[in-house]
Design a protein around this nucleic acid. Sequence first.
DNA 1: CGGTATCCGATGTGATACTG
DNA 2: CAGTATCACATCGGATACCG
Lengths: 131, 131
Amino acid sequence: MAIAPQTADLTAVCRSDERGAAHVRDILDRIGDKWSMFVVSLLERGPQRYGTLARDIPGISQRMLTVTLQRLERDGLVTRTSYPEIPPRVEYALSPLGESLQEPISALATWAYAHQAEFAESRERYDAKQN
Amino acid sequence: MAIAPQTADLTAVCRSDERGAAHVRDILDRIGDKWSMFVVSLLERGPQRYGTLARDIPGISQRMLTVTLQRLERDGLVTRTSYPEIPPRVEYALSPLGESLQEPISALATWAYAHQAEFAESRERYDAKQN
DNA sequence: CGGTATCCGATGTGATACTG
DNA sequence: CAGTATCACATCGGATACCG
């Protein structure tokens, strides 16, 4: 445990070459994929049904909603509860682990929102210079 | 240091359907890709040369180091300075924008590190149930 | 030293059709 | 309603060879 008590060192933690264990890489994969954080952000309002999520996430396909929810469930961020009724009802909710993600994620979102303009300007400058 | 006073709403910011502007999606893409955060974490120690980075990032290919650095430069997170000497010398450094990423990113890394075990256990449980 | 150029396989995502 | 199955395609990343 060479890691400091409060902040983890990315250089030490990013590596994915130890066998078995989950790593920052896995978290970053979940965070970086196309739909996961959108789903999580919706679930922060409370449990939601599959159809509700599908309606509230513009542009997502049925397949990707299913896949995203399965990955989130596998990683323990989301729980799935199905009620054996007809018609079937399934509710997805954030687990405690998923809820605990809110703080770092919204810090990131806040940062991203605050620096949107710098980001965009830098890209414009860069792209302009390329030709 | 605590989180910024007003937090950005991911549901409002995740969308990538407005024209032109940079969005949280772009940031998440940079954060989620395979090597960017590793590079950023190394640059937090100070400016580094291409060769040094290549040596310190196990498993990265020349191509991906180049591509990653270009993307980071394009997004304004990293600056590139080339000294017209022979042999050539090029130094990469974090920009102020890149440095400002450290806080949210290390919060995320800390979270990921702290919850590694829950993550891994959840995956094991999930995978075990699938057959 | 610090890159490009090219090829190619793996993975992520989307469209469409079908089901308990 | 809440999915699954299949195919098709784009992008990502790795290997290799070459260049100023």
